[in-house]
Simulated scan of single mutants.
Amino acid sequence: MLNGTWLPIAQEIGGTQLPATAFEKQKLIIKDSNYTVFAESIDKGIARYKDRKMDIYGKDGVNAGKHFTAIYIYQNKQLTICYNLMGNNYPEAFDTKGKPLYFLAVFKKSK
């Protein structure tokens, strides 16, 4: 269900909505437990999924050696992921307000 190329349609960090120009050239590719993010640079790693939670381990790129935690939901043909960039616990909700190290992204699958 998560395999494919995903294009961001909305992003926010710390409760602040990012303008579309900030992510218009980004994409996320998921293939089983491997991911690749194309943004300002390329980031690759492994994601483990269980009970709508993700553990994301950066292997190559700017996030190499980092561990992020996240929650996700797939509904209405959109994938929403809320990341805790500190990686010390999972977000409890899809909300970043008042949490400067929480990043939320909403994706649609590329055709």
Rank of each mutant, 00 (worst) to 15 (best):
A70Q: 06
P19A: 09
I73C: 10
T5H: 11
F103S: 05
A105V: 12
E40Q: 07
A93C: 15
F94M: 13
I46P: 01
K59G: 05
F103Q: 00
Y90K: 12
F38S: 05
E92V: 15
Q26A: 13
L79D: 05
K109E: 02
L2E: 05
K109I: 02
Y90F: 15
N89S: 14
T96Q: 11
K31N: 14
Y35D: 02
D43I: 00
I42F: 08
G14W: 07
Y83D: 00
G65F: 14
K66E: 07
C82M: 08
L101Y: 11
A93Q: 15
Y90I: 07
L85H: 07
T21K: 12
K77A: 03
T80L: 10
L85R: 14
K108F: 04
A64T: 14
E40F: 04
A93G: 14
G98E: 10
L18Y: 12
G58W: 10
T21Q: 12
V106W: 01
D60M: 09
D43Y: 02
R48E: 02
I71M: 10
G58T: 05
V106H: 04
N89A: 13
G87R: 10
Q17E: 13
P100L: 02
F38I: 03
F94R: 14
A10G: 05
Y49E: 01
L28C: 12
